Amino acid sequence: MNVATYGPGGRFTMTDRGRSALRQTKDMLRIGPSKMGWNGKHLVVEIDEITAPPQFARVRGTVRLTPSAITDQELPLTEDGAHVWRPFAPIAQIEVDMEAPGWQWAGHGYFDANFGIRSLEEDFSYWTWGRYPTRDGTTCFYDAVRRDGSTLAQAARFDASGDVSDIEPPPRRKIGKSLWQVKRETRGDDASHPKQIMNMLDAPFYSRSVMKTRLDAEDVIGVHEALDLRRFSKPWLKPMIALRVPRRPGWRFDSDQSA
């Protein structure tokens, strides 16, 4: 389970576990010592992890997400449907209660997921994604370049009841490259100048940040991602990923072993 916190004392954990660490039911997913479950009203995530090197610290706590509505929408990212984006709850409230001073807060959030039957680097060269809360709901952009040269340019607006409408994407706007020189761009009104408000996660192939842009004459701040899968597929990068995503193939649910 990937967990990342940002700012002073921020931590990152993403342990790659074997099949024995997985338990799944209709309403619950458990991966080793951590789990998430749906109780009919809330998605409750119980976290018990250890940070990736070079840090070695516990990350424990609970995240509770309450959707304003759950959508039934799916966006195929390839023509054959091999990759799908599923915005379960584009608008939600969250409560965070972690076992560290100052890591307790409540605010605005969302819940989405990607599914696929092939690895991303098989089908994509590059993509960007952005989600921007607005006065009327939230707006999401998905732009991608596929390996065959075709492109995806999707813009959608969600309201608090879960209704979605496709909208005409505003023009692409360039943003400065990340610290690892990953190319970044998002969408914005004519004459708008999107800019990074906060760097959240910076990797050789991936950037996540808080971004400000302007949509329909409204200044909005949201989460932005850029993913360079050409760089991700380079052999020299794999050892670096292995350091940040350690493998723990052995896990027994009846044991008292640590994460």
Results as ranks from 00 to 15, higher is better:
A160D: 05
Q104D: 06
R173Q: 00
R244A: 03
D72L: 06
R244Y: 02
M14P: 03
H83K: 09
F232H: 02
S207P: 00
G7I: 11
K234L: 06
A106F: 13
L77W: 14
M98E: 05
D16S: 13
E74R: 08
I241S: 06
V96G: 00
P90N: 08
D48S: 04
R131V: 00
F88K: 06
P235I: 11
L179F: 09
I70N: 01
P133C: 07
K26V: 05
W85H: 11
L75W: 09
Q55A: 08
T71C: 00
D123K: 15
F253S: 10
V3W: 00
P171L: 07
A82M: 08
A69V: 02
L65Y: 01
D16N: 12
A203D: 01
P194E: 08
G37C: 09
W103Y: 14
R17T: 14
K212R: 15
P239V: 09
I47V: 03
M28L: 13
A191P: 05
Q257K: 15
I197K: 08
I221Q: 01
R30H: 05
I241Q: 03
L29C: 10
V96T: 06
A82P: 04
L77D: 10
G37D: 09
E49M: 09
L77N: 07
R173M: 05
E185M: 14
E168R: 10
G149H: 14
T25P: 09
E185Y: 15
I70R: 04
S20W: 14
G149E: 14
Y126L: 10
P169E: 09
D190S: 01
A259E: 12
A226H: 15
Q73W: 15
R58I: 06
E49V: 03
D27L: 03
A217W: 12
L201R: 08
G222V: 11
F115D: 05
G162N: 03
D190R: 07
P33T: 14
R173P: 01
P246W: 11
L227E: 06
L120M: 10
F115M: 05
